[in-house]
Design a binder for these strands. Structure first.
Length: 603
RNA sequence: GGAGGUGUGGUGUAGCGGCCUAACAUGCUUCCCUGUCAAGGAAGAGACCGCGGGUUCGAAUCCCGUCACUUCCGCCA
């Protein structure tokens, strides 16, 4: 019996061997006499040459074969004749001459072609996902996904971690995202929730003495989708006992450095060890807490230069407790009115009231501007402002400013910075720019509810030195929380947890949870923490986003085998779908549908 | 909940008030062809232009509504 080979692995050294290959017809070239079939399996492509003089039966069978038929070919590997070598294929020096040609299954013409990488309508791809996944780039993405999770498991196993599964049906403890709910048949009127993450369970495993836990965990959040967000997604979830923040950072940094070097050796890691920014520094320099440090163009604060300016937009904002910051856009001084308006509209959608700009002309040191805002500044003031952005500012450049409260300024300019980085081609696509953002605020004031909300989650520990601030100025307290960022994506986030009952009680108090409330929602956690909870902390890394980075994809659907559409439907199986009255009755559920929409009336 | 983009043979696009009885590529069907490799050549089938309404002498094309996909805002501890 001939050895079964992956089609894409046949080479010159196999010449003369009798082999069997299984796969799909990628394409077929019928020269009248000779027929060439390019057979595709997961490993790649190989050519089968069928000559009617060698094997009339095989030739007859091959004549009826069409694209995507499933074949099993047993034959001899032959070196291709001189001048017929195909450099584009790894197997291009050889071909298979079949002794046995079996059609395992025919195939109808496909709704779209899978043997090239041309764009296909997203709906078609999702409806026929099993065909979309035949395309080599999608197969490569899933192969990369496997390699990443394999690397993670090996890395953590070597360091003494245990992979432990946690339940998918858990208790709903609403806070943060909306839960997916599952009705209980046995307990009428009661519901399970699908986990938004295994957060509480992994902390309880620390109380159990597992010490080092990890899980490649599915998480569920019933929120609207984005290019990098699906309602169900996967996290590498990690928790450790008896450790400091530094231990977690080292662990994850080692993991991602190793993965990058092993799985994408062609990509350079921008800086190692990964640079670290405090939350405040990241907000000040990049305008967000997930800075893309593949390019500069940092936010520049000109508040002190313009606080007494005649330009009321600037001086007024500062007088109201705000600030004025700007970006230096090299070469954009020649933007048309239309393009400038485009920038203004861009920042407006992020809460800025407007965007002031200075189109610079002349020589460095004596720059001038004819822009409307320029008339409020003396030539000296204009120089000072320009210089604040650095010595490289020159005629032909554009300076843009947002004047507002710091949060608005940061958001508007942070978004604009990312947009302009892309537009001006400042981003090197061949690097991984990892960094850490640390020292997040612990709490943020919720004006609507008149209480404090946890920025990370309610079990996040304050920095020890900031515990007294919980009494005096909770908004100033920093958390032992940290995010790892890569190329502007938040790739992982975690914290050291509270294991002290008093601090936890204080936190719940600030968040205005009543005693009953706390007990009902987190009683199991508080009880557990009374039986000897070790100091612990952890992190969760977004697996899907990690794969996106490792495959250069900009869409999460391309790294998930069976993703959902933006309206959270599965086009392949048509989920969600109405269910039988019987099922509903068994679950003690009566529908109260909005009048206009009935289930099952898509299209 | 809101804003933008897209919707034309199986697939990807062009056409953006009359030349459209809708074009091109690819795929599909039939035929020719023994060294192709995105094989080539010949012939052919296939879309009432997402759906509904309106404007107009005339609509794939303009307007309104609606549905779907998509990107973004809100939302996502």
């Amino acid at each position: 019996m001939a050895k079964v080979y992956p089609a894409g692995e046949l080479r010159l050294e196999n010449v003369g061997e009798e082999v069997t290959v299984n796969g799909w017809v990628n394409n077929r070239r019928d020269l009248g006499g000779l027929i060439f079939i390019i057979l595709r399996d997961r490993s790649g492509l190989v050519q089968v040459a069928i000559d009617p003089r060698d094997n009339p039966e095989a030739h007859a069978a091959a004549s009826d074969v069409r694209n995507e038929f499933v074949l099993r070919i047993t034959g001899t590997v032959r070196k291709r004749p001189e001048g017929t070598i195909n450099d584009k294929l790894p197997t291009g020096q050889v071909e298979i001459v079949p002794n046995k040609f079996e059609v395992l299954n025919p195939a109808k013409p496909l709704p779209f072609q899978v043997n090239d990488n041309s764009e296909v309508d997203e709906l078609q791809r999702l409806r026929y996902r099993y065909l979309d996944l035949r395309r080599p780039f999608m197969q490569n993405n899933l192969i990369m996904r496997h390699k990443v999770t394999k690397y993670m498991r090996d890395y953590l196993d070597e360091r003494g971690f245990l992979e432990i599964e946690t339940p998918i049906l858990i208790k709903s403890t609403p806070e943060g995202a909306r839960d997916y709910l599952v009705p209980s048949r046995v307990h009428p009127g009661e519901f399970y929730a699908l986990p938004q993450s295994p957060q509480q369970l992994k902390q309880l495993l620390m109380v159990s003495g597992m010490e080092k836990y990890f899980q490649i965990a599915r998480c569920f959040r019933d929120e609207d989708l984005r290019a990098d967000r699906q309602p169900e997604f996967t996290q590498l979830d990690i928790e450790m006992s008896f450790i400091q923040q530094e231990d977690i950072l080292q662990l994850i940094e080692g993991l991602y450095t190793g993965m990058a070097q092993t799985l994408r050796p062609d990509k350079k890691i921008l800086q190692s060890p990964f640079p670290r920014f405090s939350y405040d520094e990241s907000m000040a320099r990049y305008g967000n807490d997930k800075p893309d440090i593949r390019f500069g163009m940092e936010l520049t604060d000109v508040s002190d230069l313009v606080k007494d300016s005649e330009f009321k937009v600037f001086s007024g904002a500062i007088a109201a407790g705000g600030q004025v910051k700007g970006l230096h856009l090299p070469g954009c001084g020649s933007y048309s009115r239309r393009e400038l308006d485009g920038l203004v509209d861009f920042v407006k959608q992020f809460g800025a009231k407007g965007l002031a700009y200075l189109q610079l002309e002349g020589e460095t040191g004596s720059l001038t501007s004819k822009s409307p805002a320029a008339k409020f500044f003396s030539p000296e003031q204009l120089q000072a402002i320009a210089q604040k952005f650095g010595p490289e500012v020159k005629g032909g450049d554009l300076l843009v400013f947002v004047a507002d409260q710091p949060a608005v300024v940061a958001n508007a300019l942070g978004r604009l910075r990312n947009e302009m980085g892309k537009r001006l081609n400042l981003i090197n696509q061949n690097i991984f720019a990892f960094c850490w953002v640390t020292d997040f605020p612990l709490l943020e004031w919720n004006g609507d509810e008149n209480r404090w909300d946890a920025v990370h989650h309610p079990f996040t520990a304050p920095k020890p030195e900031d515990v007294p601030l919980l009494e005096t100025d909770p908004g100033k307290a920093k958390a032992n929380a940290y995010d790892m960022v890569c190329n502007g994506y938040e790739t992982a986030g975690g914290s050291i947890r509270i294991h002290n009952r008093d601090v936890q009680t204080k936190m719940f108090g600030l968040m205005s949870y009543s005693l009953e409330d706390t007990q009902a929602r987190f009683g199991h956690m508080l009880n557990a923490f009374e039986y000897g909870a070790p100091p612990h902390g952890g992190i969760a890394a977004g697996l899907d986003r990690t794969i996106m980075l490792f495959t250069d994809e900009e869409n999460i659907r391309n790294v998930i085998a069976f993703p959902k559409t933006q309206s959270a439907t599965d086009e392949m199986t048509q989920a969600p779908s109405p269910v039988d009255q019987r099922q509903l009755k068994e679950l003690h559920i009566a529908l109260a549908l909005p009048p206009e929409k009935k289930p099952g009336q898509a299209n």
